[in-house]
Computed example of a mutant assay.
Amino acid sequence: MAKFLTLNTHSWLGEDPKWALETLGKQILKADYDVIALQEINQRIDSAKVLNTPYTLKNQHQLHEDNYALKLVEYLKEHGLTYHFTWAYSHIGYDEYHEGVALLSKQPFSSEKSVLTSAVDDEYNYHTRRALIAKTTVAGRELCVVSGHFSWWKSDFKSEWQRLEQALADEQAPLVIMGDFNNPENTLGHDLVLASSLGLKDSHLAAKKVTGGPTILQDIDGWENNDKALRIDFIFVSQQLEVKESHVLFDGKKLPLISDHFGVECVIE
């Protein structure tokens, strides 16, 4: 069995971000995920740079000491669980942060790359988006894992998805593509992914055992004036991967809210 988690962390932006990080860390320690995809991974623009780090972060943006993924990995290591991680920077968020996406893996990454998915490449433009693609081994099998944070359909989702598709077109390893897609279930964006030449399925729809549904509640950043709960955070996997379970976490029920998004975990055979 292999376990995966995705979460848009909204890092450092909540009322008690240290508590949120530790709550996330405690769930990771308990569940022992093989791979974790995180979005809205922030570090302050003006915080100190990390000059020496054991993490490779090949061709990535300069890591700062308050990088949320770095702090999470340090917390986990302090509590006996070691993860490898990588991070890709997309744009400046809230005028204060370098914002990007991250991947954590229990096994080392054999390759990692950041792919520009947006039409624009300007850190001052929040439409600038990058996906993080890496290879790692899970339960003795090589997988290609992705963390992405996409735009809305009315913005540039279609072309962003097509650029990621192109980047993965020759990939032979099974795919696990995770993240904040900003395109709800049963909309054009969701349909586009399911019809992809990559041969993907929505793990939450494919799972034999499911709990939870929506991953955002109404009016949050980017979904102003929205009046209903939506499922916009997904784990899409290759057709040959058998999904046993899919659960929505951090929804204020079994686990507390730690972000303006809920998390999604899945268990794959």
Rank of each mutant, 00 (worst) to 15 (best):
P214Q: 08
T211F: 00
G212W: 01
G199M: 02
L230Q: 14
V193I: 12
I216M: 01
G212Q: 01
D219V: 10
H190S: 04
A207S: 02
N226K: 08
G222Q: 10
D219G: 09
V210W: 04
N225L: 06
A207R: 11
Q218K: 15
D202H: 07
I232D: 05
G222L: 07
K209S: 14
I232Y: 00
S196L: 08
K208C: 09
V210A: 04
S197E: 15
L200W: 02
T211C: 02
I232Q: 05
W223D: 03
G199W: 00
L230R: 00
K208S: 13
I220C: 05
H190I: 07
V193M: 05
K201L: 11
D191Q: 12
G212E: 00
L217W: 12
N225M: 08
S196V: 06
S203C: 12
I216D: 09
S203K: 06
G212T: 00
N226Y: 07
H204K: 10
I216P: 07
A207M: 11
W223V: 01
L230N: 05
G199E: 12
D191V: 08
D202N: 15
I216S: 06
H204N: 07
A206L: 11
A229N: 15
G212C: 02
L192D: 10
A206R: 09
E224K: 14
K228G: 09
G213C: 02
G222R: 11
L200K: 07
A207K: 13
H190A: 10
E224G: 13
T211S: 14
G213E: 04
P214F: 13
D221V: 13
P214T: 07
I232A: 02
V210P: 02
I216C: 01
T215H: 00
A229Y: 03
G199V: 09
S196D: 07
N225P: 00
R231Y: 03
D221E: 12
L217G: 11
D202E: 01
I220R: 07
G199S: 07
W223S: 03
D219Q: 11
K208G: 13
L217R: 15
K201R: 14
D227E: 13
S203T: 12
L194C: 09
H190P: 05
H190L: 01
L192W: 07
G222H: 10
T215P: 00
D221W: 13
K208Q: 15
W223F: 15
G212I: 01
L205P: 00
D221M: 13
A207C: 05
A195I: 00
I232P: 05
L192K: 13
V210L: 06
I232N: 01
H204C: 10
K228L: 10
A195R: 11
L205T: 06
D227P: 04
W223I: 02
I232S: 00
G213V: 00
L230Y: 08
N226I: 05
S203W: 07
N225C: 06
R231N: 06
L200M: 05
S203Q: 06
L194Y: 10
K228A: 11
D219N: 15
S196P: 02
G199I: 10
A195M: 07
Q218E: 15
G199F: 04
Q218G: 11
L192R: 03
